[in-house]
C-alpha cells in the first residue's frame, strides 16, 4: 500500500477537521475489514486515514425516543449480542449473525458494513469502480458476471452491494444519521445508497467531509415480524449469493403491511416494492409467500452468467416470509 497519514481523533468535530475535501485525500477507518485490503491491493490509496473508533458519539447502542440508535462503530458482535435487537428485530440479528467469521464479526462495524465497497472482482482487480477496459467499455456484461447484479444493472454499474445489514435495516425503515460541519442530518437508509454514474461517485450519499455516525431503528410496534434469509455456497467464510430481509406488520395470520428488501442482487440494496404491495392484506402461507417471491423478481434482468440468482432471490423472499410468520 502507499504510505499514508493516520489520525485518531477524539471527537466528531475533530474528525471532520481531519477529513479532506475529496475521497483521494482521506478515508474513514473503523473496523478496517474492507478498507485495509483495498489499500494493500492499491485499489484505494488515501493520503490519510481517520480512525473514528475512539469517538464516543459514534459508538454504542442506546434507546432513544425515536427508537434504537446503533452507533456506527458498534461491532457486529455487539449487535448480535444485543438482547433487544435479538428479541425485537430478529431479521437484523439474523443478517448480522450470518456474517462470517468470528474474527470479522469482532472487528467489523455496523457503519462499515453499510459503507463497504462493491463486491466486484473487476473493481478489486484494479479496473475501476465501474469496471471498464482501457477504451472505456464495460467489462462485466461480456465477462464473468456470476456474482453480479440482476436488478438495476442497466449500467454503468453492474456490481452488487455487499452489505448484509442494509436490507434488514431498510425493511425496518431505519434512518442513517450523518454528521458534518452543519451538524446532524437524517436520511432513510433506503435513500443512503445510490448507484454511481461515474468513477468519481460513490455508492452512497456521503460526501468526503461527512461521517455516517448512527443508525436509528424505529421502535418495534405490535405485530412486527422480521426475518432475513440468505443463500450462500459455503458455510465457511463466504459472501451470500442473495439475501432477502422482510418486515411484516401482522394481525393474526394476516399481513397488514410488508416490506421486502433484497441483498446482493443490485448495486444498491433492492427494495422489492411490488412484492411488499402485493402482500398487503394477504394471509401469510406457503402459497402467498411463493407468489410474493415471484413478484419480487418480476423486473429482474439477469446478465449472461447469473440467471440462477433470480431463482435464489425468489426463494430467499419466500423463505424469509415463512420464517417471519413462524417467529
Amino acid at each position: 500500500m502507499e504510505a499514508f497519514e493516520y489520525a485518531r481523533p477524539a471527537s466528531g468535530k475533530e474528525a471532520l477537521e481531519l477529513l479532506g475535501g475529496s475521497f483521494a485525500d482521506s478515508e474513514i477507518l473503523a473496523g478496517g475489514m474492507d478498507l485495509i485490503s483495498l489499500m494493500k491491493n492499491y485499489v484505494l490509496s488515501p493520503k490519510r486515514l481517520v480512525n473514528i473508533k475512539g469517538i464516543s458519539e459514534f459508538s454504542g447502542i442506546r434507546s432513544t425516543q425515536q427508537g434504537l440508535a446503533i452507533g456506527a462503530t458498534t461491532t457486529l458482535q455487539e449487535l448480535i449480542e444485543h438482547k433487544t435487537i435479538a428479541a425485537d428485530y430478529p431479521g437484523l440479528h439474523q443478517a448480522a449473525d450470518a456474517i462470517p467469521s468470528p474474527q470479522i464479526r469482532n472487528m467489523a462495524t455496523a457503519g462499515g458494513n453499510l459503507c463497504q465497497r462493491p463486491r466486484c472482482w473487476y473493481f478489486r482487480n484494479g479496473f475501476g469502480l465501474l469496471a471498464r477496459d482501457a477504451k472505456g467499455n464495460p467489462l462485466v456484461p461480456g465477462g464473468d458476471n456470476r456474482y453480479h447484479a440482476i436488478f438495476g444493472n442497466d449500467g454503468p454499474a453492474y456490481f452488487v452491494n455487499g452489505s448484509s445489514l442494509a436490507p434488514a435495516l431498510i425493511a425496518l425503515s431505519a434512518q442513517a444519521r450523518i454528521f458534518s460541519a452543519n451538524g446532524w442530518r437524517e436520511v432513510a437508509v433506503a435513500d443512503f445508497f445510490r448507484t454511481p454514474r461515474n468513477d468519481n461517485e460513490r455508492e452512497n450519499v456521503l460526501q468526503p467531509k461527512e461521517i455516517l455516525g448512527e443508525i436509528v431503528i424505529p421502535s418495534a410496534s405490535k405485530g412486527l415480524r422480521t426475518s432475513t434469509y440468505e443463500v450462500r455456497e459455503r458455510e465457511a467464510l463466504d459472501w451470500p449469493l442473495a439475501t432477502a430481509s422482510v418486515a411484516l406488520k401482522m394481525s393474526g395470520n394476516k399481513i397488514e403491511k410488508a416490506s421486502v428488501v433484497l441483498g446482493y442482487v443490485a448495486p444498491i440494496p433492492w427494495q422489492a416494492k411490488e412484492a411488499g404491495d402485493w402482500l398487503a392484506g394477504k394471509t401469510l402461507n406457503e402459497e402467498t409467500a411463493a407468489k410474493a417471491g415471484e413478484a419480487a423478481v418480476q423486473g429482474a434482468k439477469p446478465l449472461s452468467g447469473n440467471k440462477y440468482k433470480v431463482q435464489l432471490a425468489r426463494v430467499c423472499v419466500k423463505r424469509a416470509l415463512l420464517a417471519a410468520g413462524r417467529a
Binding site: W121, Y122, D133, L139, G143
Partner: peptide
Amino acid sequence: IMDQQTGRCLNAD
C-alpha cells in the same frame, strides 16, 4: 476463473 477480455484471473484471492 479467467476473464477472456483482460486475460486475467478474476479470483486470485
